[in-house]
Simulated scan of single mutants.
Amino acid sequence: MATEHDSVELVGDELVGNVARAALFAALMGASAYVSFPNPLSPIPVTMQVLVVFLAGIFLGPVWGGASMVLYLVAGSLGAPVFAGGSAGFGALVGPTGGYLLAYPVAAVVTGAVVHNGVTLGDYRVSTVRLVGAMVAGTAVIYALGTIGFALVQGIGLGAAFWVASAAFIPAEAFKIAAAVGIVRSDAIAAN
Rank of each mutant, 00 (worst) to 15 (best):
D187F: 15
A167F: 15
D187M: 15
G159Y: 10
A180W: 09
L145N: 02
Q154R: 12
F169I: 04
A168K: 10
V181E: 08
F150P: 02
A174M: 13
L145G: 01
F175Q: 08
R185C: 05
I170G: 00
A172R: 05
A179L: 14
A172Y: 10
A188R: 12
G182T: 10
V164E: 07
F150L: 01
A179S: 12
I156S: 06
L152C: 03
V184W: 00
G157E: 09
F169S: 09
A188W: 14
A179I: 09
I148A: 13
G146M: 03
T147Y: 04
A160F: 07
F150E: 01
R185L: 08
K176C: 12
G155A: 01
I156A: 05
I156N: 07
S166M: 14
G149E: 05
I177A: 02
A180K: 06
G182C: 04
D187W: 15
Q154Y: 07
G157Q: 12
A168N: 12
W163S: 05
L158Q: 05
I183C: 06
I177H: 00
R185H: 05
W163M: 12
I148T: 07
F169A: 03
F150Q: 04
G157C: 09
A151T: 08
V181A: 08
E173H: 13
V164W: 02
V181I: 11
F169T: 04
K176I: 11
S166R: 09
L158H: 08
G157D: 11
D187H: 15
L152H: 08
A168G: 14
